[in-house]
């Protein structure tokens, strides 16, 4: 066993430990974690890209450059700094089958993907919370029926279920969003339900009930706030999955439809060209991966920060 002298703990570290709330501690742990830091960094970057897309994109993402520039369709990347002849138009990620600048499309795609991630999971959280709260608060047969339905949804592989739902609703980005939201509802419903069930018998809740507070008021003021931390963790982790699933649906032609600059669709429409123009497959895939990775890292970080024991284990 190595013998070493103890590093000195800084005084501030020890002092801020003494008098702080759980939330503060959670955030402090979050900021200390490398995973979470990387996740936040990437996500911040992506949000900026999405906001400033018009400023960052050199071209209109939907504009075909046929007749505008003399460039072949599916031409590879051309970066002047890396030795591409200066007389050729510069396209960082090449152009696609419709002679659109892929770099600009990737940049605008950030907007679509972030929107997909937040909107689907947002919907799933809202409906999951309502369903779970009703189920947990009502108990009895209502709870039983609702939870059996959730079990059925969970029993199918979620991607296949999403495909089936889209077949019922019809193709298109909007329906794909609904489908993904639906398959994500059960997780949140279960989470909120168990949190409601565990809290509803606790003293402070029974106390406010005996003081005549309405059930809704108790639910929203007393119970649900307690479920928020776990909801945040699960939501962050789910967003990555939702983006991945949406892209896969679009890849199969069930989700976003051309010409929308959506990464999965871009990949799907050019997939047969992978052997001749790999850049048209490579870049959208990287974009998807980085985005999903950011959410996954952040979600993991949140979870570890909430559960100090796990975090300690992960660290040590």
């Amino acid at each position: 066993m190595a013998v070493q002298s103890p590093p000195v703990a800084s005084v501030e570290q020890v002092q801020d430990y003494r008098n702080n709330s759980l939330l503060f501690l959670t955030f402090r742990r979050l900021f200390r974690q490398r995973n979470a830091q990387v996740g936040m960094l990437i996500l911040g970057f992506l949000v900026l890209v999405a906001i400033f897309a018009p400023a960052l994109a050199p071209y209109d993402p939907d504009q075909s450059l046929i007749g505008v520039e003399s460039i072949d369709k599916r031409a590879g990347p051309c970066i002047h700094l890396l030795g591409c002849p200066a007389d050729q138009p510069e396209h960082y990620m090449g152009v696609d089958g419709n002679v659109r600048d892929q770099y600009s499309r990737i940049i605008y795609g950030t907007r679509v993907s972030l929107f997909i991630g937040f909107s689907t999971i947002g919907l799933a959280v809202i409906f999951g919370t309502i369903i779970g709260a009703v189920s947990g608060y009502a108990g009895g047969w209502v709870d039983n029926i609702i939870m059996r339905i959730m079990d059925v949804i969970l029993a199918f592989p979620s991607f296949l279920l999403a495909i089936a739902i889209i077949t019922v609703l019809g193709r298109g980005l909007q329906n794909a969003l609904y489908a993904i939201a639906i398959v994500n509802v059960p997780v949140f419903a279960r989470l909120v339900r168990s949190s409601v069930m565990s809290l509803k018998e606790l003293d402070f809740v029974t106390a406010s009930r005996s003081l005549g507070a309405s059930p809704l008021r108790i639910l929203f003021i007393r119970i649900l706030p307690n479920a928020i931390p776990t909801l945040i963790v699960q939501a962050t982790l789910s967003i990555g999955g939702a983006i991945l699933e949406a892209a896969a649906l679009s890849f199969l032609g069930l989700g976003a439809q051309p010409p929308l600059a959506e990464w999965g669709t871009m990949l799907g429409t050019e997939r047969n060209q992978v052997f001749t123009s790999p850049h048209l497959v490579f870049f959208p895939g990287i974009a998807i991966m980085v985005t999903v990775l950011a959410f996954n890292l952040l979600g993991d970080g949140f979870r570890d920060a909430m559960d100090p024991r796990l975090a300690q284990l992960a660290k040590s």
Binding site: P6, P7, A9, Q13, V14, R32, Q312, K315
Partner: peptide
């Protein structure tokens, strides 16, 4: 025997 915890060295 010391523990090198997040919050400092525990002797």
């Amino acid at each position: 025997t010391y523990f090198y915890t997040d919050d400092g060295v525990l002797t």
